[in-house]
Write a protein that binds this DNA or RNA. Structure first.
Lengths: 159, 159
DNA sequence: GTTCAGATACTCGGATATGAAGTGTCCGAGTGCAAAGGG
DNA sequence: CCCTTTGCACTCGGACACTTCATATCCGAGTATCTGAAC
């Protein structure tokens, strides 16, 4: 059970875009330089964020990506759901109905499997914590010098 | 981000073993029949539980698996950690130190990355909920007829 | 000098290869039972 | 009839293929800018 690196990359890019406060779109090549990431692959990873309405993409020359909403209105849950999907990590295959369970009455399986309920309970706690934190909150956790450093770095590479 | 089926299979087997209340070990073939699972593959999935000290294995004829502890002393966290590993789902690769971050002072990265902290916070909530629920608790969530049905089914296939 | 048309360079989006990890199967090592032989 | 010994059948454990998903890359569609000429 392991989360893909798309979440980490996406969140870092969202923070960078918020700090830059650019009103013109930022191309993936520039974003990739900020974190030394493979540009083509980063582009593929940001596309789910566009489809989810978190990023706005502008095609053509001088195109690129920009935040579609304010950082306070983007939760970590939104990002994780966009990149990793909305389905639950634990998926119940209803094996309780097989073998010994095949002998049971049909109405006995009215409510969901106890194991699925227990796992779902834990996963809901996880989702709740993700939904309670926004990109703006995470920006506050970063070191104070980071915003200015990103802005300066971006100005240098756009020369 | 998806959890392997080993957790589901392992938990169902733990519940079945607890309900059987057998003092002699139960072979994987019997367990597999209870849920109509591939026997050889189920065996592979139960091995991590043995290494974690949740199941006790007996080799040789009349061998098999038995609970190593009482159901009240086995948390869902124990099972998930044994099967899926103890490492966190979100792994920080410290890309904040690359690119623009390379220009920062070294002491600026004293405390962990804000993104990692936020993700860790959510994951800790998940782990807390898993650790708060035991196999005995999950047994209580199952339908009332399940224990007797499993016992009867097991008696039939051991004839 | 201004305007318009065309070419150009740069961007995103999806379709296409590659690698690792999860999934599934197999064979060998070890153990307890059972049966046969001897006392 | 009881004990010992030998063989055997059954079990787990780890080593070996295969499939699926994540990773990494490439090419095509589209747009704003820049250049040039005409008015």
């Amino acid at each position: 059970m392991q989360m893909g690196e798309g979440v980490e990359w996406g969140l870092h890019c969202l923070l960078a875009l918020a700090w830059l406060e650019e009103h013109t779109p930022v191309a993936t090549g520039r974003l990739a330089e900020i974190f030394e990431l493979p540009p083509e692959y980063l582009k593929k990873r940001l596309q789910p964020l566009v489809r989810a309405g978190i990023l706005a993409s502008s095609p053509g020359a001088r195109g690129g990506y920009a935040l579609a909403r304010r950082p306070e209105e983007i939760t970590l849950m939104d990002v994780v759901a966009a990149v990793e999907g909305r389905e639950e990590a634990f998926r119940c295959t209803e094996i309780r109905k097989q073998g010994a369970g095949a002998l049971a009455e049909a109405d006995e399986f009215g409510e969901p499997c106890g194991i699925a309920k227990a796992m779902r309970r834990a996963e809901m706690a996880w989702r709740r914590e993700l939904a309670a934190q926004t990109v703006a909150d995470v920006m506050g956790l970063a070191s104070g010098g980071a915003p200015a450093r990103v802005r300066r770095f971006y100005q240098d590479i756009t020369l």
